[in-house]
Every structure is written in structure tokens, then in C-alpha cells.
Nucleic acid binder design. Structure first.
Length: 285
DNA sequence: CTATGAACCTGACAGC
DNA sequence: TGCTGTCAGGTTCATA
């Protein structure tokens, strides 16, 4: 469950599903799921057992559940991770990696992850109650503290293309391949536009586009092409119906009718309108 | 500093 | 039925 809207859907669900509950047992079924936890699987389980989860927080694509003043369960869903409410007695999913039981005897929390790019760890909370491993992650466009001027200055200092910058989680977080392409289309900017040549108005427009796209996707509970991307209850979101460019190669641009193009770029696909999003003379990627 | 490609994984799908 | 190659909402590391 990758980008900001999908992760925010999970955060909201976890707020209702696990906050206030006390963990009884933790079973790590696949050690790779806790590879970022310094002490290994046994230490991970021991650290969480008996802990009462107090909040469900998010920055960008990271989630964390504090269970004391300075400790939290930190999660990144990678490409295929899910956090699922699992009724007692229901057969486990094929890619169950970590299982949490609770003192109240209610439904379990399952971390399911087909490709195992995601992971869980127990971390200390540092300045601003942000988990220490993600202090380098920038604020995301839906964070009330997100400052467009800071983002604009960070962009100007970079010597790279705008899409590469949008995907760099230390400049702005929560944006992945889908929402980068969607926001660039809305802003009429080509992915290879050099960041240092963007005007103030263009950056402001891009930030506005990011917010519009992310909020709209959240309202549809995210984008889900298949059952890999689901909420805590296994339900898909429907923003795929509203995508303007991502995955739309050959279909007409909603603004000008030109067929949407697809380029290979950064080892992944970029979708854009070749007419609305002109390649800059000095492209940079 | 910036850019690239590979690595980490599993599974779905198209084409032969 | 297989086999091969391609593709997938991410991050990180080594190499130019």
C-alpha cells in the first residue's frame, strides 16, 4: 500500500481498530519483515508484548503507533504491505509475516506482505515525537506544518528534474509514482523540467496540485488496481477511476485530447500529455 | 553533489 | 502446459 492516500486510509483505520488496545503476543513468521529492527525478531516481540498502543501517526508513507512516551511501532508498507484486522479463527493469508494478538481477546492485527519490501520495527521517538529512523523524511503536503516556501528553496538548491525531486522523500514526502504523474499533469509540467528553473508561481501551482490530488484520492480511499492495495478490512479504494494520466497511455488527455504518452524513466513508467507537458529544451533527469 | 542501475522479493500476465 | 520476458503505488546501496 504505497503512497500517502493509501497509507493515510490505513492510519485512520488503525486509529479506530488498535489505539487503546494492549498487545498480548507478537509472532514474527518471516524475519525479513523486521530486518530494520536492530535487536532481531525475538527482541522485537519482547519490546511490544504488554504495550498499550496510544496513537496512530503518519508522515509521508511511514506509519507509527506509540506505545510509551518514547517508543513506537514503526511501519512502512513497501510495495505490497498490508495491515489487516483479522478475526480469530479465520485462516491466515498466504503472505502473513507478523501477527499481533491483544489482551482483550479481540481481532488480531496481521502484517501481510507479498514482496517483503515493507517492514516493522520498534524505534525511539526523537525530537517532535518523530521516530528516529525517519527524521530525514520531509513533511508531506497534507501536514499542517508543510511550508511551500521551504519546499521551493529546497527545489532551487537541487540540480535535478522535477519528478526525481518529487519522489525524493527528503524534499517532500508521501508522493510516489502515481501521484507525481497526476500532479505534474495538473500543473502542466514535464517530468524532466530542471527544478532550479521553476518559477515561484509554478512551484505554488505544483504544491496546490499535489494537495488536490492527494485529498481527492484520500476521499476515494486510495488507488487500488488489484487486491494488493486494501484497507484494514481488506476493502479497495476507487481513485483508479479518476486517474488522468497514470496507466492511461493512448487514451485522450482530458484537457486537449492528445493521446497520453508513456516513457521509461528512472526504471519505471512515467505518463504524461505530450502537448500539455512540453519537454523542456534543457531536460534533466 | 547528481545520475544510474542493480538489488531486495513475489506474482500476474502476455506471448510463443 | 510450460517457458520466457515484462511489469508492479518503494527504498537503498554501489558505482560512475
Amino acid at each position: 500500500m504505497p503512497e500517502l492516500p493509501e497509507v493515510e486510509v490505513v492510519r485512520g483505520d488503525l486509529q479506530r481498530f488498535v489505539v487503546g488496545r494492549t498487545i498480548r503476543d507478537v509472532h514474527v513468521l518471516h524475519p525479513r519483515a523486521v530486518r530494520r529492527h536492530a535487536g532481531g525478531p525475538a527482541d522485537f516481540a519482547a519490546a511490544l508484548s504488554g504495550g498499550r498502543l496510544t496513537e496512530a501517526n503518519r508522515r509521508g508513507k511511514y506509519l507509527w503507533l506509540p506505545f510509551s512516551d518514547n517508543l513506537a511501532l514503526l511501519a512502512h508498507l513497501g510495495m505490497s504491505g498490508q495491515l489487516r484486522a483479522w478475526p480469530l479463527g479465520q485462516p491466515a493469508a498466504p503472505h502473513l509475516r507478523v501477527r499481533f494478538t491483544f489482551g482483550d481477546g479481540g481481532p488480531e492485527l496481521h502484517f501481510v506482505d507479498q514482496r517483503t519490501f515493507g517492514g516493522l520495527s520498534v524505534t525511539r521517538l526523537g525530537a517532535g515525537a518523530i521516530p528516529e529512523p525517519i527524521t530525514h523524511i520531509a513533511q508531506d503536503p497534507l501536514d499542517p506544518a508543510f511550508d511551500p516556501a521551504t519546499f521551493r528553496r529546497a527545489l532551487r538548491r537541487r540540480r535535478t528534474g522535477i519528478k526525481r525531486a518529487l519522489l525524493d522523500q527528503s524534499l517532500v514526502s508521501g508522493v510516489g509514482n502515481i501521484y507525481a504523474d497526476e500532479a505534474l499533469w495538473r500543473s502542466e509540467l514535464h517530468y524532466a523540467r530542471p527544478t532550479e528553473t521553476l518559477t515561484r508561481a509554478q512551484v505554488d501551482r505544483l504544491v496546490a496540485a499535489l494537495r488536490i490530488v492527494l485529498v481527492a484520492a484520500l476521499a476515494e480511499r486510495g488507488t487500488s488496481f488489484d487486491s494488493l492495495y486494501v484497507d484494514v478490512n481488506g476493502m479497495s479504494g476507487h481513485f483508479d477511476r479518476s486517474l488522468q494520466v497514470y496507466g492511461q497511455a493512448g487514451r485522450p488527455c482530458a484537457r486537449c485530447g492528445t493521446p497520453i504518452a508513456r516513457d521509461r524513466f528512472m526504471n519505471r513508467s512515467s505518463y504524461y500529455c505530450p502537448r500539455c507537458q512540453r519537454r523542456p529544451r534543457r531536460a534533466r533527469w
